[in-house]
Write a protein that binds this DNA or RNA. Structure first.
Lengths: 124, 124
DNA sequence: CAGTATCCTCGAGGATACTG
DNA sequence: CAGTATCCTCGAGGATACTG
């Protein structure tokens, strides 16, 4: 028996976990998950709150996330129609990871900018 | 005073933290950070262990990470020359985040694949 | 060994217009 | 409101050859 408890590795490009890891590490996936962390949000609300995303890309990303079982899509028969997106149980388990990453980025950005300046001076 | 403790948000596209968040969420950055988590690694070792990465992209990504102050580059005057990459203190604080993300992907990939199958059947 | 230099592909994603 | 349809740009990143 070889590694019965961990058959999947994000370092192996043929591994399904790696495929999904690359999906997580895309421009919008985690930001959308993050916006849903406090409850359901409508399509255009999402579009406004995730600064810079276009309709098409938001629509595509939501569809992929729904397919992965991370978010749920619920349609309300109002006029005009309303659609709410929310996290599934699986999606919820990912939120903490998003929060850590976001918190890290927001906390350490100043130190990173300082490092970049040092580096650029050294190169010049 | 408005939000003195949290001037940066990853949801704002003009914010430096968002810029860096997008950098974190790229195809290779976190995988490289992850490979360095047990100590220094040489260039070609990295290339072999991060499955699928090319020389050029590895080189580019390492340079960016060094500029950000997340990794350190040390040259040894052997013949031929040897170069070791290692995490800085700042880089180390990011490793835990990588590990959580990798662990999440490896743990939940089967549930995700099952959700995808259900979705595809429903659509057909 | 640890890269750089060149050329090139290809698909993510932006812009814009339209719709049930 | 919540999308779809089309067209198009542009740059990440792959392939290959070369080098101190």
């Amino acid at each position: 028996m070889q590694q019965p408890d961990q058959p999947y590795s994000v370092f192996d490009s043929h591994c399904p976990a790696r495929q999904f890891f690359e999906r997580l590490a895309d421009k919008w996936t985690l930001l959308i998950i993050g916006q849903l962390r406090h409850g359901p949000v409508r399509f255009n609300q999402l579009r406004r709150s995730v600064d810079g995303i276009t309709q098409k890309v938001l629509s595509q990303t939501l569809k992929k996330l729904e397919r992965d079982g991370l978010i749920a899509r619920q349609v309300f028969a109002t006029v005009p129609v309303t659609v709410e997106y929310s996290l599934t149980g699986l999606g919820c388990t990912l939120v903490e990871t998003f929060e850590r990453l976001a918190f890290w980025a927001e906390s350490n950005i100043e130190e990173i900018i300082a490092a970049q300046k040092r580096y650029d001076v050294q190169q010049a």
